[in-house]
Design a protein around this nucleic acid. Structure first.
Lengths: 117, 117
DNA sequence: GTGTTCGTTCGTAAATATACGAACAGGATT
DNA sequence: AATCCTGTTCGTATATTTACGAACGAACAC
């Protein structure tokens, strides 16, 4: 077991991935991306979950930095936090680039190297 | 609250994101992507966690479909599951494309639309 | 003020995640 | 066969996640 901890980027990426690791939160992000207006009520209408649960998911996305919310009179307006979302995108793109498809593809299974089924 | 459930893609993407939602599992994926040989022992050496915990994280990545493992005599060889990883990449890329940066950027805060701080 | 509406927070329950050491099992070595 | 090596599984503890209804508070309408 190594003594060193994870890198900052690994921690950040994992944090964002965790925030996205629930279908309701994916749906929220997609809805926010598609709308200009984005009040809690609309969001809640779209999702098959209770008000309290919806609010909780929004809090988690907010804690992760992916969205922002502001109170507008009686209602709360949500939107994507562009600054952090940009970082999130970059981290994912970098991660995806690090793990190219077919890296281990070889002519035939004639190597001692990884050939997992 | 809507009656409809989430889409297949939302479920799949959330599943993959959840699997990546831990720094140890990010580190495992990056290590597997960088190596041709990928035995459990090497992986374990790289991570600041106990053997049992490492094995557990590998199981979760395997359950999510992101990696494969095969027993090779005394050792276990792991590698990225290229087929599913490709799907994962596509889903993320699609998701990222849906949520472009600066979508809501406007000249000045003079609109009734989302301007969350 | 009284009541309404909107969304958050509280309290709670059940499930899942994270972590570890100990015990185990299957192949390799002697 | 006895032992060693490698990695998984078991048992366990603690923390986090997910979900809901109920209660609440702040702004608006009357």
């Amino acid at each position: 077991m190594a003594n060193n901890e994870y890198t900052y980027k690994q921690e950040r990426l994992a944090r964002y991935a965790k925030a996205l690791g629930n279908p309701a939160r994916i749906a929220i992000m997609e809805f926010l991306a598609a709308q200009d207006e984005c009040f809690f009520g609309q969001l809640h209408e779209e999702l098959p979950i209770a008000k309290a649960t919806c609010s909780q998911h929004l809090s988690e996305l907010k804690d992760a930095g992916l969205i922002k919310g502001e109170i507008d009179g009686l209602r709360t307006r949500y939107c994507i936090d562009q600054k952090n979302w940009k970082e999130c995108k970059l981290l994912f793109e970098e991660f995806i680039a690090k793990c190219p498809c077919n890296r281990n593809k070889r002519p035939e299974g004639n190597s001692s190297k990884c050939n997992c089924k």
